[in-house]
């Protein structure tokens, strides 16, 4: 619907931004005229937005508003569900996600994902972290070791697990498991890290650690995070998009969305009047 996009400044065409711009200014993901359907049910209406590189972009909105649906399109995860279809396009670094030359496997190596509930595999901590490298065919022990340490350090978990890398990942605490899943997602150095309510199953202390981690990780990765927690969005994101009933109501810097939203619905939501 047109009103969803009118509040947005018309984004520049992807790939036309001048080279040499500061990181954070160039969009890495661009969504254009995007509609998404589960069978007959339309979950997203005419969404358009640009996600800047090496920043944290948060999607907020009440349950069922489409924010997770959009997130799961960025790595084409929705295609595991029968009867989905879309119109419009999403580009990653100027290239359509549905470009026939871009295999979905390759896409998912560029766009990592952390899920709402941590999902470590029934393997050792080490094997969990290097899983993506193993399936790429990497066998070199030294390279695997190096990647495991780098990723676990990156996920602020190394010091806690370095002495038990070969024990089952399932003996970790909930917060550690979620950080392990982050380590696993960054092991093959994706460009983008998608996080689908990564703290919703964690206690406040574990949540604080993951949030701290997010601000560390944005130095290297572009992060898109879906959250129900508005404090979380203000604490760790640079850009915020507010979704309601499958439409992107407002998208802008987090400071603006939370201090002077231009839309009444945004204001109602962030002040807790509904949702």
């Amino acid at each position: 619907m047109p009103d969803a996009t009118t509040t947005l400044p018309r984004p520049a065409q992807a790939g036309t931004s001048p080279p040499g711009e500061m990181p954070g200014e160039r969009p890495i993901i661009s969504v254009r005229d995007f509609n998404f359907f589960y069978g007959k049910n339309q979950a997203l209406h005419e969404v358009a937005l640009d996600i800047p590189e090496r920043q944290v972009t948060a999607f907020i909105g009440p349950s069922g508003c489409g924010k997770t649906t959009l997130l799961r399109n960025f790595n084409r995860m929705n295609e595991l569900i029968d009867g989905v279809r879309h119109t419009g396009d999403i580009t990653l670094a100027g290239r359509s996600l549905w470009d026939p030359a871009l295999e979905v496997i390759a896409l998912r190596r560029l766009v990592g994902m952390v899920f709402q509930r941590s999902n470590p595999f029934a393997k050792s901590i080490y094997e969990n972290v290097v899983y993506s490298l193993r399936i790429c065919g990497l066998r070199d022990r030294a390279l695997l070791d190096e990647a495991a340490e780098r990723s676990l350090r990156g996920a602020a978990l190394w010091d806690e697990v370095k002495d038990r890398l070969h024990e089952s990942a399932l003996g970790l605490s909930g917060g550690q498991m979620q950080r392990l899943c982050i380590a696993r997602a960054i092991a093959n150095r994706p460009k983008v890290l998608l996080m689908d309510e990564p703290c919703s199953a964690l206690d406040p202390i574990a949540t604080a650690r993951v949030e701290q981690l997010i601000s560390e990780l944005k130095k290297e990765f572009t992060i898109v995070i879906v959250t129900h927690n508005m404090q979380q969005a203000t604490r760790c994101s640079d850009q915020t998009g507010f979704f309601y009933l499958g439409k992107l109501v407002e998208f802008g810097t987090t400071a603006k969305i939370f201090t002077s939203p231009s839309e009444k619905r945004t204001e109602d939501y962030i002040t807790g009047r509904f949702g």
Binding site: N75, M77, L80, I105, A106, R108, R109, G112, M113, F115, R117, N119, F121, Y131, S132, I135, C136, C181, R184, A185, N188
Partner: peptide
């Protein structure tokens, strides 16, 4: 087997 594990593997680029 929970769907999240399957998705976790797919999300890492597994076939």
């Amino acid at each position: 087997v929970p769907r999240t594990l399957r998705e976790g593997a797919y999300a890492l680029g597994a076939t």
